[in-house]
Design a protein around this nucleic acid. Structure first.
Length: 279
DNA sequence: CTCCAGGGTTTGC
DNA sequence: GCAAACCATGGA
């Protein structure tokens, strides 16, 4: 099925933005995404001239039917939000963010599976992104089914030794306890969606092994709380070197999390800066 | 071999 | 309240 997108949309930047660990490139201009019990292959079939023009619409060929696209992937890719408008609203005084947003144009904040994000970001602490991917894939292979991330009941089957074999190291008890709480319905991850940002943040931090940074990542990438801006080692470095140690995110209100993603992408040296003139 | 990774918890003051 | 020690592994 053919899809046309009239907004920022760059699959390569999305899968390399650090917000997701499983989506991957499967061929020339083709990418595979998985969430919950859904899987889709997406090929960018835009003409070459359109790819070089940031304002041209993006033409996609997607493997799923229209019903699934509208009910699952439209929301997953946050296609009802105007990212160009958000980028245009960045004050030019914030020159570093202007450049970062130019580099990261095309990134979108994904609405990902809650349990998967909880477990993935617990694992993420003190690990490199490639190492996180390896551990998450091992969980999928051993405890998921049909290539889907294991649901809480499936992951409950993993003993502490099993989890250790997935390279989780000292995080094994964190993942184990979180899985038990969710599988036994002591905590309802879906019900947390009704909470305010601060209340959600507090509930997420009640998990052993979830601190400020991980709670904000889960809030941003699973609950789409775009006002949350996780501060990790990369962002802390940016705050120190570019903002004289003063956290710039409060001024960006409910789009702070989107700005954080642009900065994270830029801080890793990814993306190319495109000057305002060529935009 | 060494170094460090999208941090968090525990401990000691 | 704060700073420092400590944490298991994999990837570079």
């Amino acid at each position: 099925m053919k899809i046309t997108i009239n907004d920022d949309f760059d699959l390569d930047k999305i899968i390399n933005s650090g917000q997701c660990f499983r989506p991957k490139k499967t061929g020339d201009n083709t990418y595979r995404f998985v969430t919950g019990e859904h899987i889709v292959e997406i090929t960018n079939v835009s003409s070459h001239s359109a790819i070089s023009d940031p304002n041209a619409p993006t033409e996609l060929d997607v493997s799923c039917r229209e019903k699934e696209w509208n009910e699952v992937w439209q929301s997953y890719f946050d296609l009802d939000t105007d990212y160009r408008k958000i980028r245009a609203g960045i004050p030019k005084e914030d020159t570093y963010l202007k450049e970062a947003a130019s580099c990261g144009a095309g990134i979108r904040i994904l609405r990902q599976d809650r349990f998967e994000m909880l477990i993935s970001f617990i694992i993420s602490q003190r690990k490199s992104i490639p190492a996180i991917r390896t551990s998450v894939e091992r969980l999928v292979e051993r405890y998921g089914h049909d290539g889907f991330f294991p649901n809480p009941v499936e992951l409950l089957a993993a003993t502490e030794d099993d989890l250790c074999a997935c390279g989780l190291g000292y995080r094994v008890p964190y993942v184990r306890k979180a899985t038990e709480l969710v599988a036994h319905k002591d905590i309802d991850l879906d019900a947390l969606d009704d909470l305010s940002d601060e209340e959600l943040f507090g509930e997420l931090k009640s998990f052993h092994g979830v601190g400020d940074k991980v709670a904000n990542c889960i809030a941003l990438f699973a609950y789409h709380r775009t006002g949350r801006a996780p501060v990790d080692t990369w962002i802390a470095r940016v705050i120190n070197e570019q903002y004289a140690g003063v956290n710039p995110f409060p001024r960006y209100g409910n789009v702070a999390g989107i700005m954080q993603q642009y900065m994270f992408f830029r801080a890793q040296g990814k993306g190319q800066y495109v000057s305002e003139k060529t935009l």
